[in-house]
């Protein structure tokens, strides 16, 4: 079993007003040089790495948002692998996942705090 250490950045970075995020669609943001994919569903915000772990391309923010068995999901626009937005786990390929980041809305502004898993 491998040990995973998670580092959480100390500060929150303000990204954009909430209304720049269309419901059920993603956008990419650049936070301290890291590409983050932000998603807004009917009632929640999610942030994951923008990098598709299967292909290495920075495209996950452009995937289609939906649900599978009640879990909120995004599908990679390249080869359609589906990721659980809450955990970052790929639901189609066991053992594949993307890094999650923390996201919140304060005073109408979307804020992100980076996590690094290694």
């Amino acid at each position: 079993m491998s040990i995973t250490t998670t580092t959480i950045a100390l500060r929150w970075t303000v990204v954009c007003p909430l209304d720049r995020l269309d419901p059920n669609r993603g956008v990419a943001a650049l936070v301290d040089g890291v590409q983050v994919a932000l998603f807004r569903t009917a009632d929640e915000l999610f942030a994951i790495d923008n990098r598709d772990p299967v292909t290495g391309a920075y495209v996950l923010s452009r995937g289609i948002v939906g649900s599978r068995g009640g879990l909120p999901t995004v599908a990679s626009p390249l080869h359609k692998q589906v990721y659980d937005l809450r955990t970052g786990d790929c639901l189609d390929l066991p053992g594949v996942s993307v890094t999650r980041h923390e996201v919140r809305c304060r005073d109408g502004m979307v804020e992100v705090r980076l996590r690094q898993e290694g």
Binding site: N24, G66, R68, K80, V82
Partner: peptide, 10 residues
């Protein structure tokens, strides 16, 4: 039901 997906939405 649910929220849709990359099959039904397109």
């Amino acid at each position: 039901r649910g929220r849709g997906c990359d099959t039904c939405k397109p």
